[in-house]
Amino acid sequence: MSVTREHSAAPARVRLRRPTQRPVRPQPSGVRQRRGAGAWPYLLAAPTVLGMLYLLVYPLARAILISLQDFQLRQLILGHAKFVGLRNYRTLLTDERFWQVVRRTFLFMAVNVVLIMLIATLVALLVERLGSRWRLALLSALVLAWAMPVIAATTVFQWLFHSEFGIVNWALTRLGFSSFERYPWFAHGPAAFTILVLLIVWQSVPFAAITLYSALTTVPSELYESARIDGASAGRIFRAVTFPMIRPIFMLVFSLEVIWTLRRSCRSG
């Protein structure tokens, strides 16, 4: 993962990095030699490695061990679990409900990530085109939505979509959709699903948009100018100039959102 990213990210930072990456240097001995040798890098990395071993690898190994045991509430309290091999896995993988949940989770994730990336790209392009005062206002709004803690946001969305006193039902009814009067959003599967998607998209777009916007600012404006002189349309400029330049960051944000959304759907499901 890191390898491919380093290669594909190269064009974005060519200007910055070129001096350090050229090995032609008049004084090759002193500093460079010291950089290669010694125990320092290992000492600096050791706390991270130790932390990961104890707090990630070890629990993961315990989780795998438990997955091979007959482990229920009794064993959780008293200990002494019996080894049962792959029986738990067999039970799980042959259960139709499990596959149903897996399918639903991935569908949920796909819907969310597509929406997040689409909206975030549009918002990023919007921020880039605004004047400085508007830009500050929009960025502040994004940052505030981003800073909103998940639990607080969940509570607020429950209140916004409250069946009796919620402002969403009120607004929809006022706009003429009288079927939304006292509409119980959380009682229907698809409606609750919609709210969950809205909540996750609302929470995730700011980070993605801000990151993509900052990637946009690294695209040299000369590229846009020459494309415009050549008569390219806005859509074509985006496809041929903007997107290839921000692709590394786009892919980074994309993969982060996939992970985060999957995790979040685990949490809320």
């Binding site: 919007l126 929009l138 969305f157 700011p206």
Partner: peptide
């Protein structure tokens, strides 16, 4: 921009 700002801020405001 206004629509985006309102959508971002309204839940916090509310």
């Amino acid at each position: 921009a206004v629509v985006t700002i309102v959508l971002c801020l309204f839940p916090v405001y509310w």
